[in-house]
Simulated assay, not measured.
Amino acid sequence: MTIRGLNQVRKHYVEETQKTMTFKYSNKNKKWMDVEVDEATFDKHLVPLEDAKGRASDTGMKWEQWVGLVSRGKPESLVLVRLKPQITKRRAPGPGAIRKAEWKPIANRWLQDTCVILHSDSARSYKSKISGVLHDAVVHQKKKVKINGKWVWKLPKYVTMKTHKLPSGRKIKTKAGTQVIDRAWRFLKDRVKVNQNSKSDSANIRAKIRSAQYEYWCRGKDMWSCTGNLLTWHMSKIVQKP
C-alpha cells in the first residue's frame, strides 16, 4: 500500500469514528471536562481570474482552515472540522478567527449539554452561550491599557488561573489557556507536507490532515498494532462475508 493509499484509509476511518465521538462522560455522575478549542490554517492559494466572476478585483486568497477540539489528557479525543472562511485580500495575514455562523453549529453538535469547561483564545465567536458549557479565554496579543493616566502595553497571558461557579453552586479552579490544542496543531503541521500535489482546497491535503489526526490519536501506542487494527477495519468494509 502506498502512502497516499494509507492516508485515504486513515481518512475514512477517522471520519467514520469521529461521528460517534462525544465529550460527555458515559457514567451518570456529572463530571466536568476541560476541553480546548482553536483554529489553524494549513495553506492558501490565489483564486484564479476565471473563478472570480471575470473581474480582477474579485480575486483573493482562499485558505485551508480547520477548527479543533480536544479534551485535556486524552489525545484520542481530538476532533477536527474543516471550515469555509471567506476569501480575503491577497496580502491578508490570515483568514481571521472563526465566524459565529460556523462556530454555533459545531458547538451545538459537540458541546451542548456535555458539562464542559471550554478554554479558548479571545475570539468573539467562542463567547456564544451554550447550555452545559462554561467558558474562559486568554488574550494572545498585547494591548494598550491606561494606568495612572499613562498608556502602557500590557503583555499577553497565555496561561492563567480561572474560578468557575458550577450550576450546583460549587466553585472549581481551572487553568485557562490553549496549550494542549496548540501542541496538537504543531504535531499535525509537522506531518502535513504541503506541495504542488496537496494544495489548499484539495482532497489530498484533507487526507493528509486526517492521517495526521489518526497519528495523534495513537500517541503513546504501538503504531504497528494500530495500523494492523486499521487495515483489519478496512478489509471488513470491502470484503463481503459469506
Rank of each mutant, 00 (worst) to 15 (best):
R124C: 02
R124D: 06
R124W: 01
R124F: 01
S125R: 08
S125A: 15
Y126N: 01
Y126S: 00
K127N: 06
S128H: 08
K129W: 02
K129M: 05
S131Y: 09
G132M: 00
V133G: 02
V133P: 00
L134N: 06
L134D: 03
L134P: 04
L134F: 09
H135Y: 06
H135V: 01
A137M: 10
A137D: 04
A137L: 03
A137E: 07
A137Q: 13
A137K: 12
V138D: 06
V138G: 08
V138K: 08
V138R: 09
V139I: 13
H140G: 11
H140V: 12
H140I: 09
H140D: 10
H140A: 13
Q141T: 14
Q141C: 12
Q141F: 09
K142D: 14
K142I: 01
K142G: 15
K143A: 12
K143N: 13
K143G: 11
K143M: 12
K143V: 10
K144Y: 10
K144R: 10
K144W: 12
K144P: 04
V145H: 08
V145T: 09
V145C: 12
K146E: 15
K146F: 08
K146G: 07
I147A: 07
I147W: 09
I147G: 07
N148E: 15
G149H: 05
G149R: 05
K150R: 12
K150S: 09
K150I: 08
W151A: 06
W151L: 11
W151T: 11
W153A: 05
K154L: 14
K154W: 06
L155N: 11
P156E: 05
K157P: 00
K157W: 08
K157F: 11
K157M: 10
Y158A: 11
Y158D: 04
V159D: 01
V159F: 10
T160Q: 15
T160C: 13
T160H: 14
T160L: 13
M161A: 14
K162N: 11
T163M: 05
H164S: 01
H164M: 03
K165G: 05
K165L: 06
K165A: 03
P167C: 02
P167Y: 01
S168V: 10
S168L: 04
S168G: 06
G169A: 03
G169D: 02
G169T: 08
G169V: 07
R170I: 14
R170C: 09
R170E: 15
K171Y: 11
K171H: 11
I172C: 03
I172M: 06
I172D: 03
K173S: 09
K173T: 13
K173E: 07
T174Y: 04
T174G: 02
G177C: 02
G177H: 00
G177M: 02
G177W: 00
T178P: 01
Q179T: 09
Q179A: 12
